[in-house]
Amino acid sequence: MTLTTDPETLAPRIRVLSSVDDAHARQLADVLVDCVEGGASVSFMLPLTRERASAFWRRVGEGVERGDRLLLVAEDAQGIVGTVQLLLELPENQPHRAEVAKMLVHRRARRQGLGAMLMQAAEQLGRERGKTLLVLDTSSVEAERLYARLGWMRVGVIPDFALLPDGGPCDTTYFYRALV
């Protein structure tokens, strides 16, 4: 499913992947490695090999195929440059919500609106699946600004929640978005 595309100008487009093949896994691994090397606290420590990153995306692909999650990608003329996931498989007492995870944009493609496009597409897909609440957490000040600009509500900060890729501690900030 393509949510945004402009083949005339080769502008970035957002689409949902129904599976993760080897080419997708390699491109997604490049985005993940770039973000981790840039200091993003997204569950991985340095050094992150492309093999380990590709294995992660293949596991994500298994969840996509089971219907546990949706995987959105942002693509430009060179391939995948961003991604976000919508986690749908939650406890049975939370059928109304989903979690947003791994919103990543390659450093070469930042400041072009891709993060906003990915988040708006995730929100749209959440609505289409009957979700009325989305939640996420971030350790990025830049991401916090983006989420606030898009209408997400900041809940609070947990100090020393995780580690940065180089081993130093970082806080995480939780946000929610009502989809009604």
Rank of each mutant, 00 (worst) to 15 (best):
V31W: 01
L32S: 01
L32P: 01
L32I: 01
V33A: 00
V33C: 00
V33G: 00
V33R: 00
D34S: 04
V36G: 03
V36Y: 03
E37I: 02
E37W: 00
E37D: 07
G38Q: 04
G39H: 03
A40G: 08
A40P: 02
S41H: 02
S41F: 01
V42T: 15
S43N: 11
S43P: 08
S43V: 08
F44N: 13
F44W: 13
L46T: 09
L46F: 12
L46Y: 06
L46E: 12
P47C: 00
T49Y: 09
R50A: 14
R50L: 15
R52A: 11
A53W: 07
A53R: 06
S54E: 12
S54F: 03
A55W: 11
F56Q: 12
F56K: 11
W57M: 01
R58K: 11
V60N: 10
V60G: 09
V60A: 13
V60Q: 14
V60K: 11
G61M: 06
G61V: 06
E62H: 11
E62T: 13
E62F: 08
V64M: 10
V64D: 05
E65V: 14
E65N: 10
R66K: 08
G67H: 06
D68G: 04
R69T: 15
L70F: 11
L70I: 15
L70M: 13
L72G: 12
V73Q: 05
A74P: 04
A74M: 11
A74D: 04
E75I: 06
E75A: 06
E75D: 10
D76Q: 04
D76V: 05
G79V: 03
G79A: 03
I80E: 03
V81I: 08
V81A: 10
G82P: 02
G82C: 04
T83Q: 03
T83E: 02
V84N: 13
V84R: 12
Q85H: 07
Q85R: 02
L86T: 06
L88A: 05
E89W: 08
P91Y: 08
E92C: 09
E92S: 13
N93M: 03
Q94D: 15
R97P: 03
A101L: 08
M103R: 10
M103A: 14
M103N: 07
L104D: 11
L104V: 10
V105A: 07
V105D: 10
V105T: 12
V105F: 06
H106A: 15
R107L: 05
R110H: 06
R111H: 15
Q112I: 03
Q112S: 05
G113C: 10
G113Q: 14
L114K: 05
L114V: 11
L114H: 09
G115L: 07
A116L: 12
M117N: 07
M117H: 07
L118K: 01
M119E: 12
M119I: 12
M119A: 07
Q120G: 14
A121S: 01
A122P: 09
A122S: 07
E123R: 08
Q124N: 05
Q124C: 08
G126Q: 01
R127T: 02
R127Y: 02
E128M: 06
E128Q: 14
K131G: 01
T132P: 02
T132M: 03
L133D: 13
L133A: 12
L133K: 15
L134G: 04
V135H: 15
V135W: 14
V135M: 15
D137I: 07
D137W: 08
D137Q: 11
D137C: 03
S139M: 00
S139V: 02
V141G: 12
E142T: 02
E142W: 04
E142M: 07
